[in-house]
Every structure is written in structure tokens, then in C-alpha cells.
Simulated scan of single mutants.
Amino acid sequence: MEISPQPPVSPMLAKAVPAVPEPGSVSGGLGYEPKWDGFRAIVFFDGKDVEIGSRGSKALTRYFPELVEAFTRLLPGPCVLDGEIVARTGAPGAERLDWEVLTQRIHPAESRIRKLAAETPAMFVAFDLLGDAGGSWLDRSFRERRARLEALAGGLGHPVHLSQLTTDAELARRWLVEFEGAGLDGVVAKPLDALYTPGKRVMLKAKHHRTADVVVLGYRVHASGSGVGSLLLGLYDRDGALQNVGGASAFTDKRRKELVTELAPLVVRDESGDAVHGETDRSRFSSGKDTSFVRLEPTRVAEVRYDQMEGSRFRHTVQFDRWRPDRDARSCTFDQLERPVAYDLSDVMV
């Protein structure tokens, strides 16, 4: 593998499953890791310079100068690491991952970034190796890549860590419950014999609830006439078309007004400077209701919680969870969604 300042690969992805799978469900067995709640990152080190790429191919290097310094100082040689950038807060003995602290790092002002790097420094948790000075490891099994990762990066010291790994499914199920209290959000199961396949959902993830990363298409004004009443959400289909999949609402009065300000730079405007409005399809539930919305540039990504899908839409109004500034809108596809296996109703009826 050429150690390049530009990410040559997309990270391998995971597909949601309802529970921690048994090791025998996959040929060659499974290895289980905690699912870290941070920014997915691929670190490129050529022996001198460091570049950090995100899952959406956005460069994260400038936002984490303390990690750039640590990689330069600690890594023993050229390599490409796959892992997660995380931030922690709390008193010793009661620390936990802090997503809000982490997202504050995506800021345009270098002075602000430097200040936060000193006050709340980030960590990197490595869980895969894509290459080293000897070349690419993409065509090696995860079992081999993990062994090489441990030899290369094990014991480097804070802030570069290795993720825990076990082949014990029962222990992984305990992790799913116990590690939630530390801010982790699930367990990832990795086929031990699997090659590294960029952009493919080869791994399996069991989380505490269903979530999806969606594109914000626009917003409806609240019925009171003030603030955002609901966000319109979209996902890209296999043809690359952006489809409306539902909405997120239930914001407080204060939050509704804040959202108007936050989303103002994304509002699509006509030649005269007026906001462009659209209208969603009417249904029997929207008869007589205002279905118009303010159009937004489809670049902002949000993580939402949902219970199930009905066709290509969320069955119920979803809950807004957080913004995802590390995600590229084009990466928000239907493939990420957990799809229940079809079941014949006659087999349910008595």
C-alpha cells in the first residue's frame, strides 16, 4: 500500500443486527469489539507526516492537532490505521465518552481548535490495520491484521489505544450492557477470516436502539408560526436519488428557535433572495394540513432514532439525536438500515 496523504480507501462498514450474533453463524468465527461512539477515522502516517481521513472522506487533520503530534511521536513506522477518535469527560473513576465535546472540535477557527485540544484532548482507539511499511494488508484476514496491529501499535501509550477484542459471545453480550454506562453504544462482530473490503458492510453491529444517519432536506415552520416545527429527512437510494423518508419533531420552544438560526445558511433562495419552498406529498393524514416546507441545501447530516420502517419511510416520526458533522451527506443510504426478515402472517395466526 502506498502511504499517501490522501485516503486511498473507504472504511469497511457494519450492518445492524438485532442482537450479538453467535460465533458459529459465520464461517471462520467472529471476533467481538466494543462499538466506540466517536468519529470514524483512518490515519495515514508515512514516517514523517500524518493525515486523518473521515468516513465521509473529509479531512479531520486540522481539527485534532494533539493527535497529529501523538501519532508522529508514538507510531514506530509508516502505517495506515483504522479506528475511532473519541473524547472523554468526567472525574477519574467516572469517566465516559462525550459526543458533544467531540463535535465541538469541528470548528473553522484554528484558535478555538487549539484551545479545545488543550482543554479536552481527544484519543484514538485503533481496531484495524490497512497497511504498513511492507505494503497493503487489505487482502489479509482480520485475524492476521489484528495480530499485526497488536505488534505495531500495542502498548504505545495514551492517547493511542487498541480496542478490546474477544471471541467469547457471552462476554460480548455483557459488554453490550455494561459498557453503555461508559458511553459506548454497542458491540461490533467481525468475521475473523474476512478481508478488508472498503465501503462494504461486512461487519455486524448490535446497538442499544435503531439509529440512522439522514440528510436534512428542509423544515416546516411550527404551527405557532415561530421556529422549526419538524425537520424533513432523506436517504439516497441505490440509483443515487435522494428520497424523503419522514420527519423529526418534538423540539422545545427554545430549540425550535435555535434551529432556525442554525439552518439559515443552508436555506435555498431564489434570485430575489427569498427562501424557496417545497411541498410534500399529501396523504389521508395530511388532508387540510399545510404540507409546505423551507428547502435546505442537502448537506447537513443528522443522526435520528427510529423504531421501524414501513416501505421506504420511517413508520413513525423519529427522534432527533444529534448532528453528524463528520458524515458526508452522500453516504446516507438505505443500506445502513436494519431490515427485518419477511415472515408469513399465516404462521403467526392461531
Rank of each mutant, 00 (worst) to 15 (best):
P11Q: 08
I3H: 13
W36I: 09
G29Q: 00
I42K: 00
S27I: 08
F39C: 00
A14T: 05
K15I: 15
S25H: 10
G38I: 05
E22V: 07
A16N: 07
G31Q: 08
A16F: 07
V20W: 07
E33L: 08
V20A: 06
E22G: 06
E33K: 01
S10V: 10
I3K: 00
S27R: 13
A16Q: 14
E22S: 15
E33N: 01
A19W: 04
P21K: 12
A16E: 13
A14H: 04
P34C: 05
I42L: 09
G24K: 13
M12F: 08
I42C: 04
A14V: 05
K35T: 05
G38L: 04
I3Y: 00
A14W: 10
G31A: 15
S4P: 01
F44I: 00
P8L: 13
G47K: 00
M12E: 15
R40G: 01
V20E: 07
V20L: 12
P18S: 08
P8I: 08
G47F: 07
Q6N: 13
P11G: 05
R40I: 11
V20Q: 03
M12P: 13
I42T: 14
P11N: 12
P7M: 07
A19M: 09
G47Q: 00
V9H: 07
L13V: 14
G47A: 09
F39V: 02
S4D: 09
V43P: 04
G28T: 08
F39Y: 14
V26D: 03
G47V: 03
G29I: 02
W36Q: 06
